[in-house]
Design a protein around this nucleic acid. Sequence first.
DNA 1: CTCAAAATCACCCGAAAGTATGACCCCAAT
DNA 2: ATTGGGGTCATACTTTCGGGTGATTTTGAG
Lengths: 160, 160
Amino acid sequence: MVVRFLRRHKYAILYGTGLAVLLFLLKWLEWRFIIFDHAFEIYSGLIAVLFTGLGIWLATRLARPKVVTITLPPIEPAKTPDPGAIAKLGLSTRELEVLQLMAEGLSNQEIAARLFLSLNTIKTHSSRIFEKLDVRRRTQAVEMARRLKLIADPAAHPKA
Amino acid sequence: MVVRFLRRHKYAILYGTGLAVLLFLLKWLEWRFIIFDHAFEIYSGLIAVLFTGLGIWLATRLARPKVVTITLPPIEPAKTPDPGAIAKLGLSTRELEVLQLMAEGLSNQEIAARLFLSLNTIKTHSSRIFEKLDVRRRTQAVEMARRLKLIADPAAHPKA
DNA sequence: CTCAAAATCACCCGAAAGTATGACCCCAAT
DNA sequence: ATTGGGGTCATACTTTCGGGTGATTTTGAG
C-alpha cells in the first residue's frame, strides 16, 4: 500500500527532492555570482587545489577508523531483549523469530528448516524485517537488532 | 642508478606526468569545445572530481606509513587459553579491518569503497577471514568475532 | 639484497540473498 | 461483509556472496 511504498522508498524520495532543491540553488547562485569571464586557468588552479585538499580531508575523515578495534573495554551487553523497542518497530512475533535466528548466523535455508517453513516465506519475512529496521542486508539487521536490544547477546552465554 | 631513481620516485613522477597530461588534455578540450556555453561549469566539475580523487589517493598513499606506528594492539599474550587464541587466529590487520566493517553491516562493495580497495580484494580478505574463523558466512563471522571479542561492541557507541 | 608473508587484484561460477508481485488463508475489528 | 494485518507460499529476476585459482606488488625481516 501507500505507506509501505513510502517507507520502502524513503531515502530515494528524500534524495530526489534534496537533489532537486540543490540544483535550483546552484542555478540561482550561477545567475547571481558567476558573471566573471575568463581567467579560466586561475579558477582551474583554485578549484584543483581546493578539491585536492577536500579529497585529502575526505580521505582522512573516512579512513579514520584505523586499526583501533581490538581489545575493547568490558562493556555490558544486552542480556535480554527490550520489549518496548520491539513494539515500537511493529515487528511481529514471526519476524522476531526469524531475526533471532538470523543473528545466530543461520542461512535463510536453515531458518526455513528450523521453523518448518518455505524458503520463500523466510525471504518474505526478512524483507519485512529489513523494511521495518530500515536496513538492506541481514548483517545490518543483526547489527541494528543489537543496538536496539531486540535480541539477546551471544557473548552472554559463550560456549567455546 | 637511473632505474633506482625512477623506482624510488615512482609516485612523484606519476603525479607530475599525470598532471601534465591532464593540463594538456584540458587545454585541448578547451580548443575543441570552447563553443558551448556551459564550458566553465563542466570544466570546473571535471577538475573538482578529478582532484578530489587525486586528493583521496594522495592521502591514502602518504598516510600509510603513519598507520604502522599507531597500529599495534595493546594485547598482552595472556596464558589463559581463551584470550591467547585471539592473536593465535593469525588475523592480519587488514583482515581485522575488514572484519570490523563487516560487523557494521557493510557489503563487500561498501567495504571496498571505504578502504579504497577493489571488490575482489575484499573478497579475498573475507575468504581468509572465514577460513581462519572457521565459518562459512559473514553473519557467522560477525557472530564469532563477537564471541571472541575481536571487534567492538555496537552497544558501546550507539548513534542517534 | 633476498625471501616470505601480506596485500592487492582478476576471472569464473555456483549458491545464497534480496526485490518485486501476486496470491491465498485466517482472524479480528468495523 | 468488508477491511486490514499477519502468515504463508510462489515465480521471476537481479544482486551479492563465497569458493577456487592464479597473479603481481609491497613490505618487513633476516
